[in-house]
């Protein structure tokens, strides 16, 4: 083993030791000091009491009308920049999942929607609903994970 090899090996060992030491220092420090509160059972308190309930007729009607008239049933405040033709190609059908309505206050809620698009697999989304100008409208959706 040449002197150069020994030198390089020694350097690498020192570097690994230093990284390990720093890792231990930071991680030990993180463990040894109080960390900000993380979500626990109490963290879900605000929504734990929120239980799903039958979907209001007005909400169900809005969802069923959505593919045919998205401009009317998508909120003007929607953050999603989407082509309606892509979201609701001709032949799209929607169906609300029974008893999937949850709400906080009388002007917003979350409902699960099964959507069938031609030549695509059916998908389930949670739709964020807002009561806007007297009509229930979709603000945005997120996929439902199973």
């Amino acid at each position: 083993m040449s002197r150069r090899t020994i030198f390089i090996s020694g350097g690498a060992a020192i570097a690994i030791f230093v990284v390990g030491l720093l890792s231990w220092w930071v991680l030990a420090g993180a463990r040894g000091t109080p960390t900000p509160p993380v979500a626990t059972a109490s963290a879900t308190g605000s929504s734990a009491s929120r239980t799903s309930s039958p979907v209001p007729t007005e909400v169900a009607d809005a969802i069923s009308s959505l593919p045919a008239d998205p401009a009317e049933y998508v909120s003007t405040q929607s953050p999603v920049r989407a082509e309606y033709g892509q979201a609701f190609p001709p032949g799209t059908k929607t169906h609300v999942v029974e008893n999937s309505w949850s709400t906080s206050g009388a002007s917003q809620g979350l409902v699960q929607v099964e959507i069938s698009k031609p030549n695509q697999a059916d998908q389930t989304y949670a739709a964020m609903m807002v009561l806007e100008d007297g009509k229930w409208k979709v603000l945005a959706t997120v996929p439902v994970t199973r």
């Binding site: 003007t76 917003q108 809620g109 964020m128 009561l131 806007e132 603000l139």
Partner: peptide, 24 residues
């Protein structure tokens, strides 16, 4: 009705929805 203000930043409308949904 809520969320009726026009021209607000769209992402903030989403944040408002989330806040009010959870904490409303």
């Amino acid at each position: 009705s809520n969320l009726t203000r026009p021209n607000v930043a769209s992402g903030v409308a989403l944040a408002a929805w989330i806040i009010t949904y959870i904490c409303g």
